[in-house]
């Protein structure tokens, strides 16, 4: 089944001083959760900001619901709820005032969801934003973002400053939020748990370049580590990206590796699928290429 593309990025390039993002070709489909991962400075936040038209691209185009975002019509913005890594400019407002300011622009604003999140996270709405701890600020940001109930949710490092129970609660909330109708979530994160629990797809970025968009399940089924019965011959093995010693090897293409090993009658004692964070690490250190 072909899923409807809600966001399409074509040949996107953005220069920021001596950093260059792209060229990037990427699309995000309805009813999916995509995690954008990469090292610090890989360009994840820049990509999301360009997507939100907070910085103009140097080249390429972005379409949201089929509409070019550099056009004058700005209706598309109402259909996206964006949570930046840090929210600036609101220190002097309290939660109630921020709710008043934000909810005004979203016809889909869900007051009961906002209240539910405020209660769940025990957010004091009468305290000024600037006086709240970083963790509570982030909880308030999330309540203000999720309650917009827009079709697309873009979260830039949503759990970075959160305590463990709050993170768990948020993951549950996001899963529930996905069930509210046809939705799309893009989440930039360094947290393995966010990716493991939420993502259908993983977009990997490195130094401004897109390494690829992968289906998470496919990735985790393809990357495997093998403990061999005997020492391995000193010749290249298809799919293998690392040999830890003579008997341990890591493959990014289990099928190819296993068929080669079978053809050479090499047996393994044990094989295990790699965790998603291990796979991403291999990609980012360049061993998976």
């Amino acid at each position: 089944m072909t899923m409807e593309k809600w966001i399409e990025i074509n040949r996107l390039k953005k220069n920021v001083d001596d950093f260059q993002l792209g060229p990037i070709d990427l699309s995000f489909e309805a009813s999916t959760i995509t995690a954008v991962v990469g090292n610090n400075g890989a360009g994840k936040s820049t990509l999301l900001k360009v997507l939100m038209r907070l910085a103009a691209q140097n080249e390429g185009e972005i379409k949201v619901f089929g509409q070019l975002i550099d056009s004058e019509a700005e209706g598309w913005k109402k259909r996206i709820a964006y949570l930046p890594q840090t929210l600036v400019g609101c220190d002097s407002f309290n939660g109630n005032q921020l709710r008043e300011l934000v909810s005004k622009w979203y016809p889909t604003w869900d007051q009961s969801l906002f209240e539910q999140l405020v209660e769940m996270y025990q957010i004091p709405l009468t305290k000024k934003y600037g006086k709240l701890s970083q963790g509570v600020q982030q909880k308030l940001n999330l309540a203000l973002t999720l309650a917009r109930d827009a079709e697309i949710l873009i979260l830039d490092e949503p759990t970075a400053h959160m305590d463990i129970p709050s993170k768990q609660l948020l993951l549950d909330v996001i899963v529930e939020w996905m069930e509210r109708g046809e939705k799309l979530i893009i989440i930039s994160s360094h947290q393995a748990e966010d990716i493991r629990k939420l993502a259908d797809y993983v977009v990997v970025m490195k130094e401004g370049q897109l390494l690829g968009k992968f289906e998470k399940e496919e990735l985790t089924s393809q990357y495997k580590q093998y403990w061999m019965e005997d020492s391995l011959p000193n010749e290249p093995i298809p799919g293998v990206i690392e040999r830890k010693n003579e008997r341990i090897l890591v493959s990014k293409c289990a099928e190819e590796t296993e068929s080669y090993l079978a053809s050479k009658q090499l047996k393994w004692l044990r094989a295990k699928n790699l965790e998603i964070e291990e796979i991403i690490t291999y990609m980012l250190i360049g061993k998976a290429s």
Binding site: K77, I80, V88, C90
Partner: peptide
């Protein structure tokens, strides 16, 4: 102005 940045993130017409 940081306040302007915040407003610019909302779907407020230019």
């Amino acid at each position: 102005s940081p306040y302007f940045i915040m407003l610019n993130q909302l779907p407020v017409k230019k």
